[in-house]
């Protein structure tokens, strides 16, 4: 079990991680989510032992890791761009840690790992000949070969294009589950975090602002910034928030975060408004509606109703796509 206690890290006196405390139980995957420059990669590097902590402790099963060099921590780190050793073949990359430990039957183990990540038959290839997705799979196999106590993933999928990222995120989850690996992942992509992780910590300006089981965090963001970062389209305040909350049957609150698809065109809707613009997508029609008493807001309509600009519509609010924010 990984425990961070009031951890702070600074680069040349500039604080990058400030007073972070986290727990990661064995077998779970924790995603640290935050915008670029929020200090999440520094946090990961500190856990890996690549950056010294300026204050606080990093413990594993209670033992303080200060002074334990990277290679003795037993944490494998997978970089954003894989960082495969370009002078070694795929098989030699994957077997790298096994060779360091002089383990027997390295070839068999490499075969197994390549099969696990879906790259049978790639053993002899050089990293330079692989696609981005294949490279990340090799990097994952190489990290798993260590049988790490903790797997550290630094934006493992963000260098890939959208479709591939989605597929690989699912695969990554399956592979981590199958191997029973405890993992700490940092990412700026909430969907990636949502797919892969069990728990979520949201980081802003070096601090962890919210932490918990991923569904809980997602349903109840602690503040407006977090809500926007978790993929909510807008945060409404004051009377606008009150109008939407009443329409959805939720109790009153100072602010509410709405997803893009929270408001739906329906004849019995309780929020009247005027369509500002509309655009058809394969799944639904996306609208911007000027709702009376709320202002401009995103809404969706089924494909068979296609209201044009200027038309009056009525909207219903789906309470499962809203998040009540306790503080503003």
């Amino acid at each position: 079990m990984l425990t961070l206690e009031h951890l702070s890290v600074a680069y040349d006196g500039t604080p990058a991680v400030v007073d972070v405390s986290l727990d990661l139980p064995d077998g779970e995957v924790l995603a640290v989510l935050g915008p670029s420059g929020c200090g999440k990669s520094t946090l990961l590097r500190a856990v890996a032992g690549l950056e010294p902590a300026t204050a606080g402790r990093i413990r594993w099963d209670g033992a303080d890791l200060a002074g334990v060099p990277t290679h003795k921590r037993g944490f494998a780190l997978m970089f954003q761009d894989g960082q495969l050793f370009t002078h070694l073949s795929v098989a030699r990359n994957v077997g790298y840690a096994l060779r360091l430990r002089r383990e027997p039957r390295i070839a068999d183990r490499v075969e197994e790992l390549l099969a696990l990540v879906g790259l049978e038959g790639y053993a002899a290839r050089l990293p330079g000949t692989l696609s981005g997705g294949e490279r990340q799979r090799v990097a994952l196999a190489r990290a798993l070969a260590v049988e790490p106590r903790l797997l550290l993933l630094d934006e493992p999928l963000s260098a890939l294009d959208a479709g591939l990222r989605e597929r690989l995120a699912g695969d990554l989850r399956e592979i981590l589950r199958a191997a029973g690996t405890t993992a700490l992942m940092v990412t700026h992509d909430h969907e990636e975090a949502f797919t892969v992780a069990d728990r979520l910590a949201v980081m802003q300006d070096g601090r962890v602002v919210q932490e918990g089981v991923i569904g809980d965090v997602w349903r109840a963001p602690a503040d407006p910034d977090t809500a926007l970062f978790l993929g909510y389209a807008r945060v409404l305040r004051g009377t606008a928030a009150a109008a939407v909350l009443v329409a959805s049957g939720l109790p009153a609150a100072p602010a509410v975060a709405v997803r893009r698809s929270a408001l739906l065109v329906a004849v019995d809707g309780r929020l009247p408004g005027t369509v500002v613009s509309s655009r058809a997508t394969p799944d639904q029609v996306r609208l911007v509606v000027d709702v009376d008493g709320v202002g401009k807001i995103d809404a969706v309509a089924a494909l068979d109703v296609h209201p044009g600009p200027g038309e009056r519509v009525r909207l219903t609010a789906d309470p499962t796509r809203l998040a009540v924010i306790p503080s503003d």
Partner: peptide, 27 residues
């Protein structure tokens, strides 16, 4: 020289001497 392959090797359990021999010197 990009320091990250060396860090990756260290994270895979390579001691500084092993990093030098297997990653830095080949590069």
């Amino acid at each position: 020289l990009d320091p990250r392959p060396g860090e990756a090797a260290a994270a895979l359990g390579a001691s500084p001497a092993q990093v030098l021999r297997t990653v830095t010197l080949p590069a």
